[in-house]
């Protein structure tokens, strides 16, 4: 089943053309759907949520209590984000998210998952040796005094982390703050 690209391209076209012939999808369907994920949905949305939580303490509390509802306040939610939970990183607790069984990920907040998140290496190792994976593969050495909590997204909840606000940003506005929030920081493989 190791296939070269020519074979894979032909298999995909064959599937699409038969579904189009059966009238189940249109020739425009696939591109239209993918364009939504290429242009509208991505980690910039999650960055807005994080920045709002940093500047608005009441929003932060609502986010940690019910992330689904809090994100909807910013019009963020929907497919693969029907039940969201935000976990907060602090000086003493660091959360990191993985899906060992497949690739569950909070799409409305972070977009579709990157290759490294879906990779067998990440899925196999993050639950067993997170301290080492974070230090060696992501360049994030955490102190012995920081407790690591690995969240395996194995049911219907989709998780993202609320990273700590960096020092020196006290007088920044929400938009500028959103500009420094990375996808990696919201999965928990980076700090800001």
């Amino acid at each position: 089943m190791v296939s070269d690209d020519a074979e894979l391209r032909a298999r995909v076209k064959a599937l699409e053309s038969l579904l189009v012939e059966r009238g189940l999808i249109g020739t425009d369907t696939v591109d239209q759907i993918v364009e939504v994920y290429e242009s509208e949905i991505g980690p910039l949305l999650g960055a807005q949520v994080v920045a709002r939580a940093w500047v608005d303490e009441e929003f932060r509390e609502r986010l940690l209590a019910d992330a689904t509802a809090a994100c909807w306040e910013l019009d963020i939610g929907g497919l693969q984000g029907e039940k969201l939970v935000a976990v907060e990183n602090t000086d003493t607790v660091h959360h990191v998210v993985v899906c060992t069984l497949c690739s569950c990920y909070p799409w409305p907040v972070l977009g579709i998952p990157p290759n490294w998140y879906k990779s067998p290496e990440y899925r196999a190792r993050m639950v067993a040796e997170p301290r080492r994976v974070l230090a060696e593969d992501f360049g994030l050495p955490l102190g012995e005094d920081v407790e690591i909590r690995v969240q395996d997204s194995s049911a219907e909840v989709r998780y993202f982390t609320l990273p700590q606000r960096p020092a020196g940003t006290e007088d920044w506005d929400e938009e500028r703050l959103a500009g420094i929030v990375t996808r990696e920081s919201m999965v928990g493989v980076a700090v800001l």
Binding site: D5, V30, V34, W116, S119, V133
Partner: peptide, 26 residues
């Protein structure tokens, strides 16, 4: 090791893009 690349594209190949769209459509 996890092959981490912060700047990777959403899809490496056009057929992968189509597979994603077809899965969502079906």
């Amino acid at each position: 090791p996890v092959r981490f690349d912060p700047d990777e594209p959403l899809f490496d190949h056009d057929w992968q893009r189509k597979v994603f769209g077809l899965t969502m459509a079906t």
